[in-house]
């Protein structure tokens, strides 16, 4: 299945802003995070089609998944 992935802030570095990714059916947001090599300790907001979700959220064909790091400096 195909999923649109949007990354933000430091997660863009060495990756991309927006990309369409091919994932095995039944993949979760956590699987996507692992496939992208995003450090779990840095994970912030996760949105699927604009709604807040957890890592165990299952993805479906055509979903848009936005992944934000925790931005915490000041």
């Amino acid at each position: 299945m195909q999923v649109t992935v949007k990354l933000f802030a430091t997660f863009r570095e060495g990756r991309f802003r927006t990309a369409v990714r091919e994932l095995p059916a039944g993949s979760t947001v956590g699987d996507l995070v692992a496939a992208l090599g995003l450090p779990p300790a840095k994970l912030g907001v996760l949105l699927v089609n604009g709604r807040h979700v957890e890592l165990d959220q299952e993805l479906r064909e055509g979903d848009t998944c936005a992944i934000f790091p925790k931005v915490g400096g000041g």
Binding site: F8, A9, T10, E13, P69, V71, G72, G73, G74
Partner: peptide, 10 residues
């Protein structure tokens, strides 16, 4: 609220 890291902020 505001926060920064590298070239990014919110």
């Amino acid at each position: 609220h505001g926060a920064v890291e590298g070239w990014y902020g919110q």
